[in-house]
Every structure is written in structure tokens, then in C-alpha cells.
Simulated scan of single mutants.
Amino acid sequence: MNNLSWRAIRAFILVADAGSFTAAARESGFSKANLSQLVTELETALDIQLLYRTTRQLRLTEIGEGYYLRCKQALQQLDSAAEWACESKGGQEGTIRINAVGGVIGEDLIAPLVIRFQQANPGVRVHLDFSSTRVDLIQDQYDLVIRMGSLPDSSLVVRKLHTIKTRYVASPNFLKEYGPIEQPADLASVPLISGSVDQWLLTRGQNQQIVQVENSIKLISGRAMHRAALAGLGVTRLADIYVQADIASGRLAEILPGWSESTELSMVCPPLRHQLSRVRNLMQWLKEGFGSAYAQALAESPAA
């Protein structure tokens, strides 16, 4: 494929990502006319309409959507191949884009480890952001995602980072007002504090109970959920690192201890990005340092 075709494909991807020729021109530095010409030439060469254009909006055709996904993956493969070739010359250089869980786990444990990795590898530029939103590792171009819970996509490289125990807690004053909570079914009649999920799955041996939490107080932050529980606003479900010290001091009471569960914290990486030594080295760095950092934090002061 000649250079014009590659330029046209890149122009098409820029426009599809931006949602308009104007936005693509603004973000890329290319002129709107040049981008429009390249996309038109691509459609002519393929004899296929890739975009619906009107004066008010631009959107992909059905074939355009499929072509966009395949082209974007192909270009990402080419970019990864170029990065791999450059790395083979030696040295640790390049960017690593990470999306991780936030709160105590992300900000107090993962971030310091990443900072120390950055100090030890000054040629690497780390971009770290925290979000509870599920991301698409292909579309969002992250090199590494750190997540809790199930990971259904088997095409990705997954490495276990730690096993975290989840506990259900409430303040002593809350329990005085609402009475003892002895079974998962009792949660249906008391105020709850939830995060980014709409149901809790409680497990005890082979028995599982689902508790719907759509009508709960919703706080998409572990720190905020922890503070709300201390304030007596309801029952919440948090990792032990948030609540263990409070349980020990009596500031929070653990409920349904037999229903406590363990959740995997995992590093997830696209196969192409896992080929890069800087990404593998960071994953190994986190693997070696996270367990001891977690244990130390668990033994220290409350999260609030």
C-alpha cells in the first residue's frame, strides 16, 4: 500500500475519533480541506462509503465502523512494532499509560510504586490516571489497567497483583438504630452505601446471595464511602485496607463476617503492549512491591 493510502487511512481514523473534520483538524494540525480530500480519496479507492456527512453531523456507516476498528488495530500493531524495534537497541524509554483503581489502593499504594519506577527509569514517561469506569484497552490506548474483580476478556494478558478481602461494615450507632443484621436478606430493609456497582454478591461456601443496591447512597469513591459509614449513614462494602483499623478500634462494626469475600486485584495488558520491555518491567516492579506495601498499610492508621 502506497504512502498516500496510509495517510488517507490515518486521516480517516483522526476524523472518526474526533467526530468531525473540524475537530480532527483542530486536534491534528492538518487542514480541514486536506483531511476531507484524503478521506474522499480513500472512499474512492475502496469504492465504499465510510462516512455519512451532513451539515450538522458526521457518523460512520456500518461498513465504516468495521473498517475503522480494523484499521485502528492494524495501525496500533504497526506502532507497537516500531516501539519494539526501537527498544531492541537497548535502553528503557517511551511512555506507559496506566488506568488504575483510585482511593487508598491507587493513590496511596500504586502511585508511590509507579513514582519509584519512574525515578529508577528516567527515560520512561508514565501517565497514570484513576477511574472506576471500565475502559477498552484497545480503543482507549492504555498500556496497562489495574482492576478489581472478574476479567472476562481472555485475549488480554492478566497478571494477579494481590488478593483483597472485602468486608461489610456499619457504625455502632447505626446498628443501635436499625438493629442487628444477621442475614444478607436483612440488608434489604436498611440504608446502604454503594460505589460503582448496582448489586452485591455475598458468598459463604457454596451459598450465594445477591443484594440489589440501586437505591442506596451512591458514592463513587472508597474514601467517601468509608467516611459515610463512619458518619452512620448506612452499611457499606469496602476492602479491608479501608476498615480494618476502624473495626479494631470499635469505630466500625463488621457485619455478616461469614459472608466476607476475597477479590482479585489484577494487572491487565493488551498482548501487543506486553511485548514492550518497559511495560513488562513495570508489571514486575508492581508485583514485587505491592504485597508488602499493602501489608504495611493494613497495619497502620485508618484510611480517612
Rank of each mutant, 00 (worst) to 15 (best):
N2V: 01
I9G: 04
I13D: 05
G19L: 10
S28V: 02
T40K: 12
L50Y: 11
R56S: 14
L60N: 04
G66Q: 03
Y67W: 05
C71I: 05
K72F: 01
Q73H: 14
A74H: 09
Q77F: 11
L78A: 11
A85G: 01
A85T: 07
G94D: 03
G94Q: 09
R97T: 02
G106R: 08
L109A: 00
I110E: 07
A111E: 05
P112N: 04
P122L: 00
R125D: 02
H127T: 14
R134M: 15
V135N: 04
S150H: 15
S155M: 09
V157Y: 00
Y168L: 15
P172C: 00
E177G: 08
G179R: 14
I181D: 08
E182H: 09
D186E: 02
D186V: 13
L187W: 03
P191A: 11
S194T: 03
S196Q: 12
W200G: 02
I210V: 15
Q212C: 10
N215A: 13
R223E: 15
H226T: 12
R227Q: 13
L233N: 08
G234M: 11
D240C: 05
D246H: 01
G250E: 03
A253R: 07
P257K: 08
P257W: 01
S260I: 12
S262K: 10
E264M: 04
L265R: 07
L265W: 06
S266D: 02
H274K: 03
L276E: 08
S277C: 03
L282F: 13
G289V: 07
F290E: 00
L298C: 14
S301Q: 05
A304V: 02
